[in-house]
Each structure stands twice: as C-alpha cells, then as structure tokens.
Amino acid sequence: MKTYTYTQKKDTRSGFGDGLTELGRTNPNVVALCADLIGSLKMNQFIKENPERFFQIGIAEANMMGIAAGLTIGGKIPFTGTFANFSTGRVYDQIRQSIAYSDKNVKICASHAGVTLGEDGATHQILEDIGLMKMLPGMVVINPCDYNQTKAATIAIADYHGPVYLRFGRPSVPIFTPENQTFEIGKAIQLTEGKDVTIVATGHLVWEALEASKALYERGISAEVINIHTIKPLDDKAILDSAAKTGCIVTAEEHNYLGGLGESVSRVLAKHNPTPQEFVATNDTFGESGTPAQLMEKYGLNSNAIIKAVETVMKRK
C-alpha cells in the first residue's frame, strides 16, 4: 500500500496567505478584501507588497461582498477574507444576488471552517457552509486538505472565471501533498489504491482517512482513499469507478452530514450505482469550545471514526 508521511505541519490558512502573496506578484488584477481579520487570514504579506490593491472593509461583511462584486466591474479579481461563518451564513443573500446570480468573478475565501477553529466555540464554528455554498447555482466549492494544496488552489482559482468558495482552516495539519502541485478544479485525487472500501474525504479529514487506511491495512482491509478537494463540481467518475470496484464507501468531512460532501456523493451513487455508504460528519449539531483534537474526537471526525464507519459499511455489502 502506498503510504504517506510528513515532516512538517502547517495551517491551511497559511497556504491561502502564501498563495495570495504569489498572486499579488503575478496577477495585477487580483485584489484582496478583509473584514478586520487580516492576521487570522494570513493576508499581511499581500497587503505589505500591494497596499493599493487591499481593501480593509472593517467589521461589515455584507458591505464586503457587495464591494467585491463591484470591483469585478472594471476587471478586478477580488479575494474576500474572513471566517467561514461570516463568509457564508452571515452574507448569504449578498452572495446569492450580488455575486452568484450576477455572475461575478469573486473568490470567497473562508478560514476557520468547522469545529477545528477550537476554543471560540459554536458561534464561530460553521458546519453548514459547504451546503449553503454548493446550493448556489454556478458556485464552485473547494476544500483543500493541507498547506500545499490550499496554496495551489488559491493560485488556481484566480485563473478560473466565476464565483468560487474556498474553505480552509486554523489548526496545523500534516503537509503530505507535493509542493508546487498543479491544482485542477473538479478533479479528484486518488491517494491509495484499495479493493475493500472507498474512503472519500475532504479538507482536514483527508489525512485522517490516510491514517485510517494504514490501520485498516494492518487488519487486512484494503482501503482506497480519494481526496475530494472540489465538492462542486464533483468528480462523479472518480467516485463511481472506485465504488464499482470496492462495493462500499465512507465519506469523511468536517461538516454536517446534511448538505455536505456525503450528500453529494450519495446523490451520484443513488443515481448511477446504489452503494452502501456511511457518513463521517457531524450529526446535525452545533460545535462547542475545546481543542481541535478534543472536538474531532467528540464529534466523530478523526481516523477512529473513519475506521468504525468502514467496519459498519463493509458489513452492509
């Protein structure tokens, strides 16, 4: 079995910040906006190098989304930055009308997604954002898994014309994907080859899926791990090909099972090849204060939860 190791851990939001910095040097149309969270979003270097292309909006996210929409008129490519909660739920109607329905080329960049934001608790831990964004017609939804991939995704979305939701997080997680990788929107990445079960994971749960696959291998279970960094458009073919081979599937995400990656996968399977599926996701609940590791454990979002789900789903084959 192919195994993955890492030498360094880093937060995915730093991948965003470094990707944005690179865009600042290479694409003069890229502009950035922030609602009073530049440190949290790692935007400092971009701002330092391009002060005229940065807009500090203040604590006014609705205004930020509207200004971003307006900046596209004149050819700018705006990247908005704030926490995932304030990037989506707080401004849903602004995104819906002024960005998505208006076909504006805005990149909504959302940090601190999911429970791993940690101690700030449920007011700041959105677990519904993927659902909110994927339901908007024309919106692309991306949730990369580590620093390198987040950086690559940030750079790639500048070349894609249309609204994009880019979701990333706060905790340090292993860097296991290649440096300077090419990021292909909508293209799933098969990380391990397996025959007994497919594990489809997104964001922070991809590493957990790899950890789970190692443990499962030791028990004689061969798991095919697929990294779905793009939830919309979904790589239907990659999922169907793998499910046809293994006959069962586990989806894993730091999000409510309602509206998340798991539901998107279910739709594809139900339509083309009904397959037993288990969901590693939060169970229609809010989060709470705690360390990221404690919260991942309590809400069933780690490799242990994935292993359990694999055991369950394999019995249903």
Partner: peptide, 23 residues
C-alpha cells in the same frame, strides 16, 4: 448587477468606484 433584494446596491457601486480608481 442584479438587484431586487434591497440594500445591496451602494456596496456594489462603491466597489465599482474603487475599481475605477485602480484603473
């Protein structure tokens, strides 16, 4: 820009105004 859901137009206009300045 699409409008109808009220209160959004001034933000959009401000963004367009700032794009004019950058250009």
């Amino acid at each position: 820009i699409a409008s109808g859901s009220l209160g959004q137009g001034m933000s959009v206009a401000l963004g367009a105004a700032q794009a004019k300045k950058l250009n």
